[in-house]
Design a protein around this nucleic acid. Structure first.
Lengths: 215, 215
DNA sequence: CGACCTGTTGATTCTGCTCAATCAACGTGG
DNA sequence: CCACGTTGATTGAGCAGAATCAACAGGTCG
């Protein structure tokens, strides 16, 4: 049986930017726009259509409950594409976390949905499903470990992880409170799993244990 | 500006089956296979590739932690397609919940990824993101309300909702324990929000209140 | 310098989990 | 037909993890 690569996504080990260059050919990119910290990129209810490519910085995808509780469904960093929507308008909103450079990708009129477009959507889906497990079945420490491992991996597994987002964002991503984030980081420190170089720099001392907590 | 329908998904109000007929043209459907309750459809680590169309019954998509905790990321019912994967193999597994009829859709060799394929993936993404909010920022009662409202809507907003899954599945879908599911249903009953016709039939008495709990 | 914002820490509360008993429904075998 | 075992659901008691409420520290910026 021959498997069609278009939706089985044969080459996941390639870097994201590799696929993006493919994507660019089917869409019309604009110049890079800078978004200051906390600046909105698109809002809930805005018309969907264009996609957004992160050039640098970090973006958060958020949703609010009626009484103001916030859930961040994803952080996006350099090379990643966001803005996918099944409906005609966005039901999440996107904001710059720390000052981000964004390239808007506008669809051109003739374009087919390329394989890479589908692949990017499927990666978002896989990531979201993984996060679903974290929120549904993991306690606060395991959630924090999952985030640290994820960030470390995205940043090339260097010993020092940069937290571009603040405690509040971390909490709303992990479905806990920012006080709990603080406490968990302290216990990790006491267990010699990490070292807090500064408020936004975490040195990973024991990656194995952190991975074991959330594999 | 012209918006490309392929990934903006212009016609979300259509029934899912309508899009599936489009999808069928680009893939090779097999005959319907019956899966008995709890029978696996595909396993974690199995090669991804084909998609699966639910003809009748309910399917659960699951993931396990190393110590055996389970998270159900989605239930799929008649007309829905599942089995999307970004990588070369499945990182979730799928099982029949209550006895389900499944049609396997095998990709043919020439096919492009059609627009409807992308649309289905984006719907899965939207659903998963919505569920992420439920798991991250909602308490047990609100989670249960969200499920009931979702099921009611899927079943055409009839007054009586059929629970094709048992308490254990509901719990693992909502990220709570089955005892809590029981307790929440009892409080809903005491609040006259629902009536328990039988163990698997719930009569919705106050849909508005349930919707308010989870909008 | 003071106001403000973010982060940390402590005290207390509470939601939901764990452990456990009980019950109802069902199937099996004597 | 009944005794028994099994499985799923309900309910209760006690506990633990995380939230809430509150105080305080450190850094930044006007």
């Amino acid at each position: 049986m021959q498997i069609q690569p278009s939706f089985r996504a044969t080459a996941p080990q390639g870097r994201t930017t590799g696929d993006v260059s493919d994507l660019l050919s089917s869409m019309v990119p604009t110049a890079v726009t800078f978004y200051a910290p906390d600046q909105p990129i698109y809002g809930q209810g805005d018309a969907a259509g264009p996609l957004y490519l992160v050039e640098f910085g970090t973006v958060r995808i958020c949703r609010l409950t009626a009484d103001g509780r916030r859930q961040i469904s994803a952080f996006h960093t350099a090379g990643e594409v966001f803005g996918f929507e099944a409906g005609i308008e966005h039901d999440s909103f996107a904001e710059s976390v720390d000052g981000a450079g964004i390239r808007v990708l506008r669809p051109n009129c003739n374009g087919q949905p390329t394989a890479s477009l589908l692949l990017l959507a499927l990666r978002s889906l896989a990531r979201t499903q993984h996060h679903l497990m974290v929120l549904g079945r993991r306690n606060a420490g395991e959630r924090m470990a999952a985030l640290l491992v994820d960030l470390a991996e995205r940043q090339g597994n260097e010993p020092v992880v940069n937290l571009s987002m603040q405690r509040n964002d971390i909490a709303d991503y992990l479905g806990i409170t920012f006080e709990t984030v603080s406490r968990i980081l302290r216990t990790f420190k006491e267990q010699k799993l990490i070292r807090l170089r500064s408020i936004s720099q975490i040195e990973i001392l024991d990656l194995d244990t952190l991975q074991d907590m959330c594999e």
